[in-house]
């Protein structure tokens, strides 16, 4: 392997991480929005969200990527692989984030909500000043844990031709006729990235553990 090969795999890793991060940045607020739809029981939208979460949560990321990349053009929406990849990853992580946010909303202490009501706060104020700060804290550990899983499932978008870490390694392997070294390098590199997330996750869990949980 030449230094260029190492570089190209590292570059692939960077692409993977960027895709993960973009989908996380989009998927966390999207999940919150959908959780609010479920919480407010908006008719029709509520049922649609339930269906979306149920199906996407159980759908392999590879399959979802294929569906979005190959099937959406049939209904007139065609996308570049990168956009399709981002859409896939965002939809997939948002489904899990919806459940996390919803769980936090459902468990929001009723008396704190009552207190906000009794001080005459309107819906917007109640959400922005009282509920959101609270559920952000309680959801954080689960959100970070989902982020870790998300980073691990990102290589799935290799199937629609995005040159991320897996494809980069395959290319190097194909050229050098030695597939093993590029994969070992890719694995080590990627493990370090995930390890960073896992460490963050553990730190967040310790920091935000509910009192009396130990």
């Amino acid at each position: 392997m030449t230094s260029y090969d190492y570089y190209s795999i590292a570059y692939g890793a960077l692409a993977t991480v960027s895709l993960s991060l973009i989908s996380i940045v989009l998927g966390v607020p999207l999940g919150l929005g959908l959780a609010l739809v479920r919480w407010s029981r908006l008719p029709v939208f509520n049922q649609l969200t339930i269906a979306y979460v149920s199906i996407v949560r159980t759908c392999p990321t590879v399959t979802l990527a294929l569906l979005i990349f190959y099937a959406l053009p049939v209904v007139g929406i065609s996308m570049e692989p990168v956009s399709a990849g981002i859409l896939t990853l965002t939809l997939s992580t948002a489904a899990f984030n919806t459940e996390i946010w919803r769980n936090a909303l459902v468990n929001f202490p009723q008396d704190q909500y009552d207190a906000a009501l009794s001080f005459g706060m309107n819906r917007n104020l109640r959400f922005r000043r009282i509920i959101l700060p609270h559920i952000s804290r309680t959801s954080l550990p689960a959100l970070v844990s989902e982020m870790t899983l998300q980073v691990k499932s990102t290589p799935a978008v290799a199937i629609i031709g995005i040159v991320e870490i897996t494809r980069a390694a395959i290319r190097v392997g194909a050229r050098t006729y030695e597939p093993l070294p590029p994969f070992i390098f890719a694995l080590v590199l990627y493990s370090l990235i995930v390890l960073a997330f896992v460490k963050t996750q553990r730190a967040v869990e310790r920091r935000f553990a509910p009192p009396g949980d130990h």
């Binding site: 691990k152 290589p155 897996t166 994969f183 890719a186 990627y190 995930v194």
Partner: peptide, 8 residues
């Protein structure tokens, strides 16, 4: 736990 399944 640090390795993506596909790479593994």
């Amino acid at each position: 736990r640090c390795v993506p399944f596909l790479l593994f």
